[in-house]
Computed example of a mutant assay.
Amino acid sequence: MPESTHLAGPAPADRPPTAGDLVDRYRPGSSFFFASPRQVLLAEGVAVGLPARDTDLAGYVSTMLAAVAGDVPEPVAVGAIPFADPAAAHLVVPAAVHRAAPVGVDWRPPPEPAGPPAGIEVRAVPEPEGYLRGVERALARMADGELAKVVLARSLHVGTPSGLDLRRVLANLARLDPRGYTFAADLPGGRTLVGASPELLVSRVGDRVVANPLAGSAARSADSALDTGRAAALFGSRKDRHEHALVVEAVAEALRPYCADLRVPARPAVVPTGAMWHLSTQVTGTLADPSTTALTLATALHPTPAVCGTPTGPARDVIAEVEPFPRGFYTGTVGWVDADGDGEWVIAIRCAEADERTLRLYAGAGIVPGSRPADELAETSAKFRTLLLAMGLPDAA
């Protein structure tokens, strides 16, 4: 990707870095960026690579962080884990870690993109008609009683002859949704996973555990009255409330073995992002064993029905049969864990995998009995807007 124009300027030596400073320092290929409502984290360089493991990934990472504690100023593991194959996780211990206050506290917004790059090409995979047929196949499987929910995705392949400035895209994502989780993680083969997820898989601070599953969505509207009406309709939708309950139940079931107590609200809230309304439930708990790390919890939870379906096995089978592409790191998890076990892991949605001149964007929708294929297609188009707006391509979905 081409070098960015200057975004924020270097941080003066007499003050801590701001969110804008850390965006400005981000470099694709040698950095990891993660912004949450708690903080902004920028990791630079690689002190230790962490070869992926197909068993006890969390235990291996904890052992490695303890081993390098005397050699690395702030031992922390950062990176991403793919949807289908934890053995292909891409995690590193960075050489340096910088932190700043959350986006929005001191954020200096970058200018809007000047416009889409010349010669850009966008191709849908599958084409909309193919996605509709896939939803119909999934509904037929549900009618047979094989599964209760499956999440089906489609992708947009974007080609840019001159390349896109990923630092600009990252800055725009953080500006467009400062309440979300903005990330950029290096991947094998010189690729980058970049996105702005609204969904916290799990965080751990001391003995406090938080998970925030989202399921059930509606597109936002620029008309305030219509937008409010869509939020109310989402909250009252039996179909969406059922879909949401499936996810919350699965998250709570996965967390209970690790928690001395677990608090699950009886009703969801409706929360906004820049492009969507979501049904949201914040599940909180207290660890039973203080040695349980954020990564242990993340691997226990992943994949939730929010991105896969339920039961998990049949849902995975339908995804493999219907989706005409491998998901890679889409609907995996991205985040960090430190030597104390604290950390934040989010679900890799509203994201793209990018290399020097191409990006592959992904968006999915939860299919349950009663879903209408045209509605699910429209939902994926609305979800694409998060990345497309940041790229200066709002109408490309």
Score class of each variant (00 low, 15 high):
G59K: 06
A245T: 10
P394Q: 03
E249P: 02
P272E: 09
Y181W: 13
P373G: 01
S237D: 07
T304L: 04
V23S: 12
T192D: 02
P213T: 00
A87E: 13
A288W: 08
P290L: 14
L166F: 01
L132C: 05
V307N: 09
P198L: 04
L173N: 05
G309L: 00
P373R: 12
V135M: 07
A306H: 13
L387P: 09
G59D: 06
S280P: 01
W345M: 11
A315T: 11
L255A: 06
E112W: 02
D340P: 00
D54R: 15
L176Y: 10
E199W: 09
Y60A: 14
M64V: 15
E112V: 06
L152G: 02
P117A: 15
T358D: 11
S280I: 07
S381W: 14
V368R: 10
S31G: 13
L377Q: 09
A245I: 00
D338K: 03
E121Q: 10
R350T: 01
G206E: 13
D261H: 06
F329H: 07
G285E: 03
Q39E: 15
V251S: 08
D165I: 05
D24M: 10
P109R: 07
G180A: 15
M391D: 01
E356W: 01
P324G: 02
R175E: 12
E199V: 09
L65P: 05
T292P: 11
A294N: 00
W107C: 11
P82E: 00
R350P: 02
L295S: 02
P75H: 11
V92G: 10
A80Q: 03
Y60H: 15
D240V: 04
A184W: 03
A245Q: 14
A260W: 04
A215L: 05
L201A: 12
G115W: 11
V251I: 10
A233I: 00
G366S: 13
A80Y: 01
